[in-house]
Nucleic acid binder design. Sequence first.
DNA 1: TAGTGGTCTAGACCACGAA
DNA 2: TCGTGGTCTAGACCACTAA
Lengths: 246, 246
Amino acid sequence: MPSYRGSVMEGVSVGAQSLKHVKVREYVRALVAGSIPGSAAPSERELVNLFGVARMTVRQAMDALVVEGLLERIPGRGTFVARPRRAPTPVLSFSEDMRRRGMLPESVTLLARLEQAGPGVARALGLTPGDAVIHWRRLRRADAMPMCIEDAYLNEILLPGFLQSGMPVSLYDELGDRGMRPTWAEDNVNADLATEEEAVHLEVDAGAPVLRQQRRAFAEEKVVEVSRSTFRADRFTLRLQLGQSE
Amino acid sequence: MPSYRGSVMEGVSVGAQSLKHVKVREYVRALVAGSIPGSAAPSERELVNLFGVARMTVRQAMDALVVEGLLERIPGRGTFVARPRRAPTPVLSFSEDMRRRGMLPESVTLLARLEQAGPGVARALGLTPGDAVIHWRRLRRADAMPMCIEDAYLNEILLPGFLQSGMPVSLYDELGDRGMRPTWAEDNVNADLATEEEAVHLEVDAGAPVLRQQRRAFAEEKVVEVSRSTFRADRFTLRLQLGQSE
DNA sequence: TAGTGGTCTAGACCACGAA
DNA sequence: TCGTGGTCTAGACCACTAA
């Protein structure tokens, strides 16, 4: 939470950051990194002696780690390494998702060009119909098998030189390099039957079941990607974790 | 965070809780409840004077509200009501989901009985095959139209007298009454074609696209519900918010 | 009984923002 | 310049846990 320097600074033997509570916090973080859940962290008074700071300062440091979910306090007993908290489904790209499933993602660009946004894409991207958008259509494979057809639409204004710079392997990596890695997304998911064209690319019969996923992906408050993905239902199941992180 | 009483207590004119920082916190919470985002909260020193407590105590109170996402501190300016944070998709029951969509949920029980858990259900519920489970199959309607067939499996041990007490309108409400409202779920979602039997209930042709959702719902660390739902794809689209809450 | 975390005091100086 | 939040001190008493 601290955003600028505090008051008295005198340099402490342990650690190397600027603020005292940050020093203590990072010292403890490093100390318990990799520890098994339930193992004891240093006591507050121990850290007071070690760092020569007030107990409130130590508590400020520990508070942050508790809020973070790294530590857990048990009154009368001590402070312990917490069991990692469950996290809701993160925003993953196809490549990241497949790698998490232990498969090798590949991608063939079917189309990559500048277009004028239609009304639907424009609304989703927060643009005006006719504005320039990047349309990128790819066939996605996993372990050499067709898995998905993905149409991504990107705001050209936010991504100058994107088409010229050669298409990246991972869209989300490229967006990350530009400081626009999506951290939030709104997905709509439903079921349908493969069209003739989809069937050809996905190597299934027309009318085979497919999972359709429409996404609006946000970085900060801006929509950076709108996409429609069509998955082979016989090869792909969406995995979701729902609920609060606490 | 506090789990028991603190030290000196002397009663303050404002508020009615036990701990000072809790008094301050709840006072501020009530004060800003319903305020528009961006409006100013009382300054820390203001609250110090109002409650006659140390500033650290006020900061402890405000810290909690900041972590909670209710307030936002801007150094040099003050403390303000924060814009509500985005929350990932919560765990909703069919009824709750439909009501959020502005539709009227209804439900017809097709089957409700005690069964011996098969291997799949047993594993998902954390039981041994052959253990007693409650199997509850319902046809779900929204605005009087067939929407979904749901098979729910419940751990009979956790829900004594469940079948005898008459089936509840909302499963999650009933679980909530027993202190076992699911707050976490793992869903698997894919697409398929309706079977003959499903087609009859859902009033579609056999082979129509359906969305299948398998759920493991948790209350605390215990699995309280395992379910398989089959939705008419022409009437139902899954809506998801992905990403971190911060 | 000793050690732990929970709460609280009454001050202090600092960096930043707005007037 | 004044008010804000950010940081920090050096103590204190309490309730609880475990030895």
